[in-house]
Simulated scan of single mutants.
Amino acid sequence: MPVALTAIPANMISHEISLPPFPDDVPTVPIARISYAKLASSDKDEMDKTLKAVQTDGFFYLDLMDHSLGRVLLEEAENVVNFSKEAFDSELDEKMQFRAEKGKSMFGYKPAGTVKKTDKDLRPDTTEFFNIAKDHLLGNSESRTYPPQLMQHKEELQTFTRDSHALGILVLQVLAEQLDLPSEVFADKNKIDSLSGDHIRVTKKPPHDPSQTNVIGLPSHTDFGSVTVLFNWLGGLQIQSHDPERQGEWAYVKPLPGHAIINLGDAMVKFSNGHLKSAKHRVVPAPGAQAKVDRYSLVYFLRPADDVLMQPVEKYRNEPVVSVGGKVGEEKVYTAGEWMVRRMQHMSK
């Protein structure tokens, strides 16, 4: 994997041990646990497990503690969340100076209170976040402005971007090989030096007010891009259960210390013509005592380069076309840049 870092010993990784524990009396989905070390060494059983995970639940845990580069990434993730808190703590009018231009750009600040068309109840969400473009951080394109509390840590954000991107590329290489495709067929559509929608998202959801019912952190959706790398320390993420007794019901994905949560986006459904899955998920108030504290999370979204054509790879091109969740962008072959803009414009009220 193309990463050159100094390994951090496992005993130097700090965890959020002061947070309330995840309760043991709420429904959870037992998604697969995958070893980063085994994936990096092309362990066949682990690669098989990875393909099965993204074809069933669409999500898996990735154990980062068993590999030196994984432990580096964990340390970087905690660092990014910690210095981002200062940006979130600034006044709303200050944060709004960096607001993303709705329907035109995803980069910048998004306040809580957005209504998504994907939510049939049209509930305002309760999550605020900053989206920071990979291309702005790495100098691939001219940057918009971001809060100074974030940009004074630009080097740390650049490093986290490179390392998260490399992790996403490894996942794409594994999946290509498991589908008997050239190992770089997906990776080549997601090169780090190509202009794309790749970005960091750091989020904050305030404590839940128990007097409020039917509250949503982020409504049900699938991700746009190729690979999503999530770091979270509190519950709230939910996917739909495959337990025969709870089929289709929402259940929590319990955060595991030392693990990232990986899922695929709609671009991989498009490129594989449905042989890979982009699973619906949502964010609700954290369960139990965890609902009483601020919930932070950190995401890296790996997305296809803007000039990549959104069509199946050659192996699947003669098959009947699988629609990506009945969403926009199916009537012709768009570039990834065009496809993302259309998706943004059809998501929000």
Score class of each variant (00 low, 15 high):
173 Q>V: 07
181 L>E: 04
195 L>C: 09
216 I>Q: 10
174 V>D: 03
221 H>T: 07
173 Q>D: 07
211 S>Y: 04
188 D>M: 04
218 L>N: 10
216 I>Y: 09
215 V>G: 07
214 N>R: 13
183 S>E: 09
181 L>F: 02
195 L>F: 09
189 K>M: 12
208 H>C: 13
223 D>P: 05
205 K>Q: 15
219 P>S: 12
218 L>T: 13
179 L>Y: 04
200 I>H: 03
223 D>A: 01
219 P>V: 04
197 G>L: 10
225 G>I: 06
227 V>C: 01
206 P>Y: 09
200 I>A: 01
182 P>G: 06
172 L>V: 05
222 T>Q: 12
178 Q>M: 08
186 F>M: 08
173 Q>E: 14
214 N>Q: 15
192 I>N: 08
203 T>I: 14
220 S>G: 12
227 V>I: 12
214 N>K: 14
191 K>R: 13
212 Q>L: 15
179 L>R: 10
180 D>C: 02
205 K>S: 14
211 S>N: 15
184 E>R: 06
220 S>H: 00
208 H>K: 13
170 L>Q: 07
226 S>E: 03
190 N>I: 07
194 S>Q: 14
226 S>M: 03
211 S>F: 08
208 H>N: 14
171 V>P: 02
227 V>W: 03
201 R>E: 02
218 L>E: 09
198 D>S: 14
206 P>A: 13
224 F>Q: 03
181 L>W: 06
212 Q>V: 11
174 V>T: 12
187 A>D: 11
182 P>E: 09
211 S>I: 08
217 G>N: 11
195 L>K: 14
